[in-house]
Design a protein around this nucleic acid. Sequence first.
DNA 1: ATCGATATTATTGTATACGATATGTTTGAC
DNA 2: GTCAAACATATCGTATACAATAATATCGAT
Lengths: 217, 217
Amino acid sequence: METRRANQIAETLEQLLLSGKYKEGDRLDELRLAEHFSVSRTPIREALQVLVSSGMAEQIPRRGVFVRQPGPVELMEMFETMAELEAACGRFAATRITEDGLHKLVEVNTNCQQAILNLDYGLYYSENEIFHQIIYHGAANSYLERQALQLQKRLKPYRKMQLRFRGRLNQSMAEHLQIVTALQKGNAEEAAIALRAHVAVQGEKFHQMMATLNSKD
Amino acid sequence: METRRANQIAETLEQLLLSGKYKEGDRLDELRLAEHFSVSRTPIREALQVLVSSGMAEQIPRRGVFVRQPGPVELMEMFETMAELEAACGRFAATRITEDGLHKLVEVNTNCQQAILNLDYGLYYSENEIFHQIIYHGAANSYLERQALQLQKRLKPYRKMQLRFRGRLNQSMAEHLQIVTALQKGNAEEAAIALRAHVAVQGEKFHQMMATLNSKD
DNA sequence: ATCGATATTATTGTATACGATATGTTTGAC
DNA sequence: GTCAAACATATCGTATACAATAATATCGAT
């Protein structure tokens, strides 16, 4: 199937789409891509199918596959869903996370704090990502974990955008502490609520940003 | 891409996998399938990719694609996740579902009740499915709705299995009523809790059934 | 006789060739 | 000049051909 070449091409294309080098509605021309990657159409088509099945592109029969960047509405939906997935992870993790997991969580959170002090936004974001991934894993439900990881990856570029909202980082850290505390106490409901709010606010910030952009034109 | 033939084949294969005609670990031979469907390997390969990307089959490079029926552990994980997705849908639907949606919900629920009285299990299950789908839709979040629909479809054969647990149907109807009431009141938390419990119990029943089967050998 | 190395075979992965359909263009009629 | 129809072209979908690799069988040595 899509071994070696094809899935490597899929990864590359995925990165290109996520980084926004292709714009909404762009047609992903098989021939162009084929010569660009110096392969035949076959592996290109397999790579495109991967994009389509992950929702990053849309395929219209006999017309081709087109880039499908989520619009504001769908993005809000995805953030909402992410908030619920994370809440679910937190709910399970509260009673299931290992001691080791909790230790890592605290450690990574410390790194986050340090990154903020150093104004190292890049580090903050990578550590923040790990923080959440530890919780997904702590839920001890590999299916749910996969779903969460998938959506986290998909939303990554948009989380980055709403980075520099004034005071957001410190607020975010306070929320992290609440989350850790709830997990340490083993309080499922509290963990779920804290995580839902923590992620949902990202969606709201994003919404604000979109509104700001729209009001400019 | 997988237009016309290929996606039709994918659907057929999907049904075959869900109905359990292929067993865990079976290799899906491209040549055999190709001659069986009287097509070349190309559309078969595209169909297989669809199965792989939906998690119903696994592909090992240079070896082929193999049927991947979820084991007891993964099934429990999927039921757990379904419960959380439905809870999320209920949470949103409580404040967002339309009057029309509520009416349909009551109507479908009446059909469920009638089906039980008539001992028409087939009808009960199809109406029950619709009942839940109305709630997914009522959440007014098309992304979440898609996720819920996808997992519902995936779990369908296993829900059917735990059909004849004594008293389950009547209990199920009572839960439906609770859910409808919560939605009518617009009580998000109550709706979420009711839906989570309603779905989670399916997973538990399934678990019981698995245990029963295991104790027999 | 068993184990290991080599050769054969089978099957996947990729390339190319062919067929079908949609898009764009040209031509002709009104 | 505009619209419609037929034609040309481009691109997708499928079939076949070829290449690469993994599984299997055969043969030989100990």
